[in-house]
Nucleic acid binder design. Structure first.
Lengths: 384, 384
DNA sequence: ATGAAAGCGCTAACAG
DNA sequence: CTGTTAGCGCTTTCAT
């Protein structure tokens, strides 16, 4: 329509992005030369400094942006990776996403997220993204029922890495917390008091995660030459189950206890059971939980927790995936060390205050304090 | 290298995806015809049923997948949108991401996430993604210091929508909770007892969100013909500030109270202050908080909360963005109604149990109960 | 030191 | 009903 009356469009805002061709034409150069300059290969092609300068200047003036779609098409690389997790709204997975996004960005990659919600259909769609080259590779946390899909995907050579959980007998890298090491931390912490009966309470042992935690606990017991008063396996990892079991346990067991509640829900249930029994933590019963996730801050229970390096899981998963995309052989398993966070009193101070800050809402207001804790990308705001 | 000795590769797994051309050649058809069939336009072009069938069969057999990059390049549409939020690891934003991802997927779009962490550099990179056509549009929650970047982006015609917060005087759609309506819910709930002094405690009023909440509260006060005993504006929205204020308040005010703690941190602080004073909720003091976010479940405080429809914010933001990308005029502001969740006792039951389930870790174990609550996409698992 | 040309996989306008 | 052709923006030989 109105093409002829528009022979010199300097920078009309939303209309038609600038292409290399545009720059070339206005400069009386070939598009090739512009490409050489703009992709930083002017040295290699010995473009004259003057030309380089002119191209740069005009590109700047016109607001040239490389067209990522054309580039992706040309190179057959989308520069995007996908993260498919069970439940993005869960702080555990969200933390992984944060770490992954950070690392991906560092390498010029974009992070696409998929919320699987236990749905194998969604898992298949996530795998599709790779097949369709919408993303170059996938980071996935295996969900129940999806094992065969992942096995098939691997046979087709589809590039992915697993996180948190590994499909049995599948030769694909997995990044997760070293749960056994976490149990070692927990036990050593509990062993700082003498003469306490040791209790382990955790989730069902057919789940590999819980198996690892108990194994680590028992191995360290052996090494320490001590015995546990009770090993409690819950049939269901819920606060209710843990609370019930704890109440029951407190009737059986005498004397001061040291409890390792080996997962989040067990921790909550354990604390409730203890409170219901009218006992105090940590004076009468000491508790170490697993996974922090805001809880300790909000409840202000003086419990120590074994915290997973969720950001690290995301970060390492991305690194592994990118290595694999680059054709390198990668580790079969990457274990990240957890850390133990001790909390001393009911009154938040120092570290406690830092944690409180993480739960605070900013909502547009400047955040006065902003320094990383332990390298993790886990700064939080906005909780109202 | 070994190209000649491989003239007929049926479906070698990871090697070279099948193109339309491959199908066309093997069938002695033109690539165009294959395209017509595979894109479902065979009716329009009146392709013979036999041909359609042959193409379909071979595509199936060869495992043809449309190459999204080529398609994106051709159509100049990436079929990806970006969600840039302050802090992905915060359940509020993560919930929005879940809702957004669901809606995006429904429309064949992919969701790219960016974790801004209050960093304007990251915001600019998020805007870059659109400039570079890596994504078609952006959903962004304005962060402090980023207003000018967003204003500039809008002037350049870059397609985006805002969530939760709106840059003042910027004519760009914003999707957020109807905070004022939330306050109405809160006040009506508190007014169910007679003879209670009403207290409002909330964050600083230079933040629009908190302003809206107080405005809604006061408007409803007027409509109800009642007066508040105290309107408390905290300088900082932290649990510590709220607790201190509450302690102070409890010394000043006599008689049964009904408190509206208008944001999450205020709620936590308020409850702590009340507990510190040895008073009981809700018998001596009734409390309505703002934003659920696991708290009520873990703390089992019998407080009601005004909960935001976080999934809905994500969903509507995507809808608006896609409409705008389709060239439609869109609403300037979309307000989502919050809902009030009442909790009656200390013992979790019915709804309480459903909430508990959300906080539970599945980790590979099958999830027995799986039905949506109130249309929101917020099924949760994995918290250990 | 610069340019011409081909092609990545797909779609669409236009012929037959 | 099916095929020919051109082109999306960019990179990359290969010439000059």
């Amino acid at each position: 329509m109105n093409d002829p009356p528009d022979p010199d469009p300097p920078h009309v805002p939303g209309l038609r992005p600038i292409r290399m061709k545009d720059i070339a034409e206005q400069l009386g150069l070939s598009q090739t030369t512009v490409s050489h300059v703009l992709t930083g290969k002017h040295a290699k092609f010995r473009i004259s400094a003057a030309t380089v300068e002119r191209v740069w200047a005009l590109a700047q003036k016109l607001g040239y942006r490389t067209n990522a779609m054309a580039q992706a098409f040309r190179e057959q690389k989308s520069y995007a990776i996908s993260l498919a997790v069970e439940d993005l709204s869960n702080p555990f997975w969200a933390g992984i996403a944060v770490g992954a996004e950070r690392e991906a960005e560092l390498h010029g990659y974009t992070l696409v997220v998929s919320h699987l919600a236990g749905n194998t259909g969604r898992l298949r769609r996530a795998l599709q993204l790779v097949h369709e080259s919408r993303v170059d590779g996938l980071i996935v946390s295996p969900i129940s029922g999806g094992d065969c899909d992942l096995i098939a995907a691997h046979e087709q050579g589809l590039p992915f890495v697993q996180i948190d959980r590994a499909v049995p007998d599948l030769d694909v890298a997995c990044v997760r917390t070293d749960h056994a090491a976490g149990s070692v931390l927990a036990l050593r912490h509990l062993l700082r008091h003498e003469d306490r009966s040791l209790v382990y309470i955790g989730g069902p042992l057919d789940i590999a995660t819980y198996r690892h935690r108990l194994d680590g606990f028992q191995a360290e017991l052996t090494r320490s030459g001590v015995a546990a008063a009770a090993i409690e396996e819950l049939k269901e990892a819920t606060p209710e189950a843990a609370e019930a079991r704890m109440v029951e346990l407190l009737q059986r067991l005498r004397g001061p206890l040291a409890v390792y509640a080996a997962n989040f829900c067990s921790t909550v249930g354990t604390l409730r059971g203890i409170r219901a029994a009218g006992l105090s933590v940590p004076d009468e019963i000491d508790v170490v939980g697993f996974d922090d996730i805001l809880m300790a801050d909000l409840l202000r229970y003086p419990v120590a927790t074994v915290d997973q390096d969720v950001g690290g899981i995301g970060r390492e998963a991305v690194r592994l995936l990118l290595q694999r995309l680059a054709g390198a052989e990668v580790a079969r398993e990457v274990l990240l060390p957890p850390r133990l966070t001790a909390r001393t009193s009911d009154v938040p101070r120092s570290e406690g205050r830092a944690r409180a800050r993480r739960a605070r809402r900013a909502d547009g207001s400047p955040d006065p304090s902003r320094q990383s804790r332990s390298g993790g990308p886990g700064k939080n705001k906005k909780s109202n």
